[in-house]
């Protein structure tokens, strides 16, 4: 956890410094704002990792002496096959086509996206096929 935190905080710090130098030197707003946002993208998750790294003991993947047996246990919960990503993707496809060819494409698009949202959530709770 500590290395991850240092990595992100370091990136945030670098972008923060760059933002200060660039914005003060060029007085150009678009780049300044984008670098400021880049700094936040380093600091927000970096701060989260840092906060946790001080409050939890090293995970097996952070422990250089960890053994595979010592790390045995549940890694996580993984879905099996699922139709909902495809449904959601096709919904997004139709919505984009609506931007080009006609607003009526929104109807199948939104139906598919809504259906995928409901179906995916239900699958996440109930557990799908593996």
């Amino acid at each position: 956890m500590k290395v991850e935190a240092k990595l992100l905080l370091g990136l945030g710090l670098f972008f923060g410094l760059m933002c200060l130098v660039y914005w003060n030197w060029s007085l150009e707003n678009a780049g300044g704002v984008m670098m400021f946002a880049g700094m936040l993208l380093g600091f927000l998750p970096g701060g989260y990792f840092y906060w946790w790294s001080r409050r939890m003991k090293a995970r097996p993947e952070d422990d250089p002496y960890a053994t595979q047996a010592g790390g045995a246990g549940v890694v996580g919960s993984f879905p099996g096959t699922s139709i909902w990503p495809f449904t959601l993707g096709m919904g997004a496809f139709f919505i984009v086509l609506a931007l080009v060819f006609g607003i009526w494409f929104m109807v199948p698009g939104l139906v598919l996206v809504g259906w995928a949202a409901l179906g995916g959530t239900a699958e996440g709770r109930r557990g799908g096929k593996v």
């Binding site: 549940v74 919960s77 879905p79």
Partner: peptide, 8 residues
């Protein structure tokens, strides 16, 4: 969803 274990 299934729980996946680290292999021993």
């Amino acid at each position: 969803m299934t729980d996946v274990l680290h292999p021993p």
